[in-house]
């Protein structure tokens, strides 16, 4: 449970409450990880929180974590400047299963639709990078659908543009447009119908607020996507990442161990529709 000390080598402000930190270990090699997994990040003296890895395993270089300022620890992390230190434990949990390790390329000639809500793009970023990188070799088509409350909340704009240039279909929608917004306005699910993927041969990777994932998952299944091919990334209170602290339970799941990425089919769709209050 002891973290490895990392140094902040770059820091980018993404929105008014999201900061991306690039971290390098003070000693030793960078950890290996899979897109979708998370680390426990420590702001020394304040505490520790679970933050997804948003880099692509194929990229050498620092670890990337996008942190949203929602509590004492995440605020402290957001305020650490370049040169500062962060404790890192991980990587933990399940991944999006997009790297060749998991599936051979040959069965991978299919469409992948990635649906992100707000900062939900962060845990998906590495997966999209991996998928887009396979496009020149004839990998399956990639559709990236992003929903945000308002244009200023759209993260990773440069990545979105780069993915589009590389051949991915990138669609963005906002709930509340600004006067300068000329793009699509509406719920992110309204992008599904015209995106152009073939539901019968599609896998979907979803990350965002649970309400958004529930609605999107149902819409995809209604379109004919196999529920087993719909993956969602779930979040609960995480304090250890090791399956020891009990906080991350969602029914029969320990999300640090059985998640965060789980297939929507079966028990998960039921658990997501449990009113636990």
């Amino acid at each position: 449970m002891t973290p490895v000390v990392h140094r902040v080598v770059a820091r980018t402000r993404e929105t008014d409450d999201v900061v991306t930190l690039c971290l390098e270990p003070v000693d030793g090699p960078r950890m290996d990880f899979l897109p979708g997994q998370f680390n426990m990040l420590s702001a020394f003296g304040v505490g520790e929180v679970a933050i997804s890895l948003s880099g692509a395993p194929r990229d050498v270089g620092p670890l990337r974590h996008s942190v949203r300022d929602v509590g004492a620890v995440s605020r402290a992390l957001c305020q650490i400047e370049v040169g500062g230190v962060v404790g890192v434990r991980g990587p933990f949990g399940t991944d999006w299963r997009v790297t060749p390790r998991e599936e051979t390329r040959s069965v991978d000639h299919r469409d992948t639709v990635v649906v992100a809500g707000g900062i939900g793009l962060a845990p998906l970023r590495g997966a999209v990078c991996e998928l887009v990188a396979t496009l020149p070799e004839g990998g399956g088509r990639v559709f990236v659908l992003v929903g945000a409350r308002e244009p200023s909340q759209i993260v990773f704009g440069e990545d979105l543009a780069a993915w589009a240039r590389a051949g991915a279909t990138v669609l963005v929608s906002v709930d509340r447009p600004s006067s300068l917004w000329h793009g699509h306005v509406g719920l992110v699910t309204t992008l599904l119908a015209d995106a152009g993927f073939n539901p019968a041969n599609t896998r979907a990777l979803l990350c965002g607020p649970e309400i958004m994932m529930r609605f999107t998952a149902r819409a995809l299944v209604d379109m004919g996507v196999n529920p087993l091919a719909v993956l969602v990334s779930l979040e609960r209170n995480m304090q250890c990442g090791l399956g020891w602290c009990g906080h991350c339970q969602l029914g029969s799941l320990l999300l640090c161990r059985d998640g965060p990425v789980v297939p929507y089919a079966g028990i998960v769709s039921g658990l997501m529709n449990e009113r636990e209050r």
Binding site: M1, F44, G45, G47, E48, C240, W244, C245, H247
Partner: peptide
Amino acid sequence: CFCSDVRDSSELDGTIVRRR
């Protein structure tokens, strides 16, 4: 029952202690 919290605190001398 095994549930636990993980908490940080600072000692008077500035040492940071993490406890479960």
